[in-house]
């Protein structure tokens, strides 16, 4: 695929979350957190500013605790590579309400644009499939993104995994709250739970 055909990560995330309804969203450390913030702050957004490699597992814990709500993890290729074992754990647990979307720009954009393994030898769609996740796909058009966004609300057919090749433009940072206790207690409150 030529660079010119790669999708814009902000448009991808805006489309994924346009009709989010009761969806819980976990964003991986880095540009994904800015993308989710750019799509609009929400009391069911769990923004990560650290814990690299942990996004999918946080999503799994949420999905198992809230099986009647869609949970989507939106993260980058570098963050996903660091937690690749978590795809094996998701493939074993098979939470039907969990979706994982990787915004794959093939670089570590936060640290100077160094190439990630997805620029070379690693196909994350193949990794997810080999980990036992049956609904895996590479999304290349905004129509496919829209279709996936609708499927995220299907609580019977997950887990699902999508890799989206996006361009490597460094976009303006849209900063969410960095206060983890606030973020997590806001989600708990939205789900009817007290802080402690």
């Amino acid at each position: 695929m030529s660079k010119a055909n790669l999708l814009d990560r902000r448009k991808v995330v805006s489309s994924l979350l346009a009709e989010r309804k009761d969806t819980i969203v976990v964003s991986g450390l880095g540009a994904s957190t800015y993308d989710i913030a750019a799509a609009g702050d929400h009391d069911r957004n769990l923004y990560l500013w650290g814990a690299m490699g942990g996004a999918v597992m946080i999503g799994l814990g949420l999905a198992l605790a809230q099986p009647k709500l869609p949970v989507v993890v939106i993260t980058g290729d570098g963050e996903m590579l660091m937690g690749m074992g978590s795809l094996a754990t998701v493939g074993l647990q098979k939470p039907k309400n969990l979706s994982v979307v990787v915004l794959d720009n093939e670089v570590y954009g936060e640290t100077g644009g160094q190439a990630s393994h997805t620029a070379g030898n690693v196909d994350l769609v193949g990794v997810a499939r080999a980990c036992g996740i049956e609904d895996v796909r590479a999304l290349a058009t905004m129509d496919e993104i829209g279709a996936f966004a609708r499927r995220m609300h299907d609580l019977e057919s997950g887990p699902r995994f999508a890799n989206v090749k996006v361009d490597d433009a460094n976009l303006e940072r849209v900063l969410s709250s960095r206060d983890g206790t606030f973020i997590v207690n806001r989600i708990r409150g939205a789900l009817g739970h007290s802080p402690m």
């Binding site: 814990a51 490699g53 949420l62 074992g85 754990t89």
Partner: peptide, 25 residues
């Protein structure tokens, strides 16, 4: 729910998510 992990750090993140969703682990 017993949840086998590939590495222990997965469990720390899982428990954070469980807490966000209202469960203890």
């Amino acid at each position: 729910r017993g949840i086998p992990l590939t590495t222990e750090e997965e469990g720390v993140a899982l428990l954070a998510g469980a807490w966000a969703g209202g469960q203890r682990g």
